[in-house]
Amino acid sequence: MIKKFPLNRKQRTLVKIIISIIFLVTVILGGVLLDEDKIVTNLSERNSAPSLEHLFGTDWLGRDMFTRTVMGLSLSIGVGLIGAIGSASIALLLGMAAATMGKMADRIISWVIDLFLSVPHLVTLILIAFTLGGGFKGIVIGLTLTHWPSLARVIRAEVMQIRSAEFVQVSQKMGKSRWWIAVHHILPHIVPQLLIGFMLLFPHVILHEAAVTFLGLGLSPHEPAIGIILSESMKYLSSGMWWLAFFPGLCLLIVVRTFDQIGENLRVLMDPTRNHD
């Protein structure tokens, strides 16, 4: 028997979600509020290993890596959120449209989905970001436009399945309009899918953002995004300064996992038929 917690499982799930959200909000706020002075060049404290004063050590210019990591994460979460929300919205719109607007719309949208899926989206992303001149705007638009297809496909399938359910047919014969059914019957079933999809998109988006930035096509070097930190740190890895890449990388992993956690736990809470396990 597992140790008896004072809280039941549903309450624990809620607590987990709250803790995860608090963690993410702290990171974001930390990035905004942390003292910029800490990351000014301080050549007297170059390359110091992690210590109490500099939890994550300092880099080759004497900048505090903890501050840089938090700011980088904060920026990445921001970019990731905007990108994932944008992508999920596109996926929802196209998925719903494909499944409800008739055969022709379905064919066209499915074709576009397949088209996007057939090209690795890192390539499309780089192209779009490059065309738009890189920077914050370029990368956000690029991320939004490239991450929706697989989620759109899932949503389309889900909508089609619900559309043929008996309760939807009954609703039609009670004189409900297509729009009413979409909002009242179909959407409640899609929301959990969308949430999970969104939570899975998020780490994807952050990692791609980091990758593109790492390659030098994303955010500009003076914006301390996590990708830039990692990319710069790579050069110093061979000289034994492990902390430069280790902590930012680990933190990125933790943030990504936290989003996964929130997604999974929300799903458990939202499904009325699963409220017993």
């Binding site: 359910a165 008996e166 309760f167 009954v170 019957h185 409640p188 079933h189 009325p272 038929t273």
Partner: peptide, 11 residues
């Protein structure tokens, strides 16, 4: 219909 569970939106 025969199966009320199917004719009702579970959400």
């Amino acid at each position: 219909l025969q199966h009320p569970e199917k004719a009702i939106n579970p959400r």
